[in-house]
Design a protein around this nucleic acid. Sequence first.
DNA 1: AAATGATTATAACAAATGATATATGGTCAA
DNA 2: TTGACCATATATCATTTGTTATAATCATTT
Lengths: 258, 258
Amino acid sequence: MIPTSATPTIHTPAAPSTGGHPLHPIVRKLSAYLPLDAEEQAALTGLSAGGQRVEGRHDLLVEGAVPDSAVLVLEGIACRYRHRPSGSRQITGFLVPGDLCDPDFAHLGRINHGVGTLGACRVARIPREVLADLVERHPGLARALRCAKLAEEETTREWVMNLGCRSAVERVAHLLCELHERLRIVGWATKGGYDLALTQQDLADTTGLSNVHVNRVLRQLRLMGLVEVGGRRVDILDLPGLQAVAEFQADYLRPAAG
Amino acid sequence: MIPTSATPTIHTPAAPSTGGHPLHPIVRKLSAYLPLDAEEQAALTGLSAGGQRVEGRHDLLVEGAVPDSAVLVLEGIACRYRHRPSGSRQITGFLVPGDLCDPDFAHLGRINHGVGTLGACRVARIPREVLADLVERHPGLARALRCAKLAEEETTREWVMNLGCRSAVERVAHLLCELHERLRIVGWATKGGYDLALTQQDLADTTGLSNVHVNRVLRQLRLMGLVEVGGRRVDILDLPGLQAVAEFQADYLRPAAG
DNA sequence: AAATGATTATAACAAATGATATATGGTCAA
DNA sequence: TTGACCATATATCATTTGTTATAATCATTT
């Protein structure tokens, strides 16, 4: 469902649509891996039924818990994170609309990281039985979900690459490119940019930089004429240039179906 | 099979055994997740049959290829890696004995990273049909392999944590702790240490540091009386101390079965 | 044995990034 | 409007880490 004026806390200028009628983000996302028939699409749409609003900065799954349901993000942005004993936080992954966390909990005990919203979100909680039933009845969906999981793994490896061997400017540029592509796939970004409810501190906790240095980097990217970040908005001025700085190759987000 | 004098290029002082008879590393590893019956253990032993020796610094899977078989590491150490256009390399994961790469290739197209040996290895190539047949006939193995995959995902997230918010000393200490635990599980490490065929440059490419700084860090860890690294060997002098510096929590390597 | 090449060790210096402090600007509620 | 609070911006300085250069060590080959 497209957010309306009744939901003022979420920016919605990029509300997604396809040929006039909106598609649920998870349908858009999974369709990018494998074509889904009407029945499969309907099943996914059913998952999105019980969506609830969650404010920004709220936990969805707490560290150490044994979750009894998965979380499907419908709107907004959330993240996986962990804290060090010293208090510093590392964001280890983002959840954008269409992302499901965590399809595999059935085989998992306690989760050793937290999951929380950054900006305000709309999310659906999916009991494990519902999800198990879904993948059993629809092998095509099971397969698409496995593709999505592989893409997530590749994304985490890409983050290792980012943190391990790119400079501060390259890291931030890469992150902005990745979010652009992921949001674009589900209809929440245009070529010109996207809304992003992240603070500079959030970007710092993601890229392994200090908030001060993130600020320096964003200024530099602005002066380079590549991208302007501010006011909960990312305006991309030169996408090829930004991608070049980041050495961004979108293919890791889209493993080809075997 | 335990390496003998016929295989002089692999250090073997820590050759694993259990009650006198050796166990294949993948049996040891998967048993740590779920108990395996004799039939399942036999099936895994069959996988290890066609092991071949591979020299150090050789590719097992090349970037961009469409692999037609998985790789099971039996001895030695290998890694996943990627190169930047500038030439710098990032190691994104290690493969130790018992690790299978990649159970899910059937759903994957080209792989966007390479897999190669670091030290000399013994590996088995497992055709996709063989693997598919195995998991079909043995649901218990399928489940254990999924657990292993979850542990690998958690490990990659732990690496993000390591690269993103730990200092150089902490990073190296954490890596040494992780390798110790992973090798210990499959019988290739004792409390006192383990053989490790990594150069300081390899450690640098893993931890996102320069080789010079890795050298500085190793000296510091030695002066702190925690660990001595050199001569293809890691001697742990103070395991609790090393783990404390690293804030190492082994649980991410062992998700409890749900 | 000598030569070669790779790895390790160390010093000196450069560059990138972090920490602290402070000011500015926006948002929200009273 | 005011005040409080949070995020952003910027300057200054400290620290960590990278870079370059050079030796020393070790294994391998000739």
